[in-house]
Amino acid sequence: MRNSEKQTMAVIGAILFLGLLMGVSLLLSQFVVAEAQEKETSQIQTEDSASSEQEEEDKEEEEDEEDEEEEEAVELEPGFQKVVDEVRAFWKRESESEIEELVISPFRVPPRKEQYEYYPCMDCHEEQEVQPERELTEEHEDLVLDHGKQRFWCLTCHFAGKEKNYLRSLKEQKIDFNESHLLCGQCHFERQKDWLMGAHGKRVGSWSEERTILLCVECHNPHSPAIKPQLPDPIPKGIREIRMERSNQPHKIETKHELIKVWDRIALKYKNERTK
């Protein structure tokens, strides 16, 4: 039984390996890829083929597999590559070596694509053309673009052509929606490093097990990323307020008077001295 299982696995593995090679050669014919990058992809491929379970999954979702290959092809800026290496070095753990949902990240993010109402975009955009004007009038008109001080528009981050299921880097590379931080990190690279390392953003689930962090867009609306002021939760009731409330006295929670700012105070002092 075991032997036969192994044999079948080997056969499937070989087929998959061949398939992957074909995919890569196709890609190679499409893009000009640096040699170093090529080496890396082949390394990852061999790693992939090593674990048979993953391969079976891969087989089931052939489309996804293709996506992955394309993602691998995202050429990273040399500066960012350094950050990625750093992140990997910091976060890579032996126990987590199998968890590779994202290509570059040794951590998991809750998948984003499933959350989108309109995803995959190509379902509609197969037929519908992209409106050439900057003003959105027919669809998506609820979107308010308040990002980048009017220097951006839709096609800064989205493709106009057939690649609409992906985000578009400034170099026109395809970026998966589940890896949107690569897009944000083009400008917000320092924030991105913080996020990758754990000083920004939010880890969910467990502090001890596999690291799962929320993508930028979970908290920031990418079209209007600034978080708006809102009313806080109720003011804590001090002992005074509780007493007044219980004795049915009218009361107002005491708020301190406006304080004079440090710089104003100092400025005032100098101003007074000078007018003397």
Binding site: G238, I239, R240, I242, R243, R246, S247
Partner: peptide, 10 residues
Amino acid sequence: GIMGHGLGEE
């Protein structure tokens, strides 16, 4: 309880 005391958290 609280109404019987002048004391509080602070």
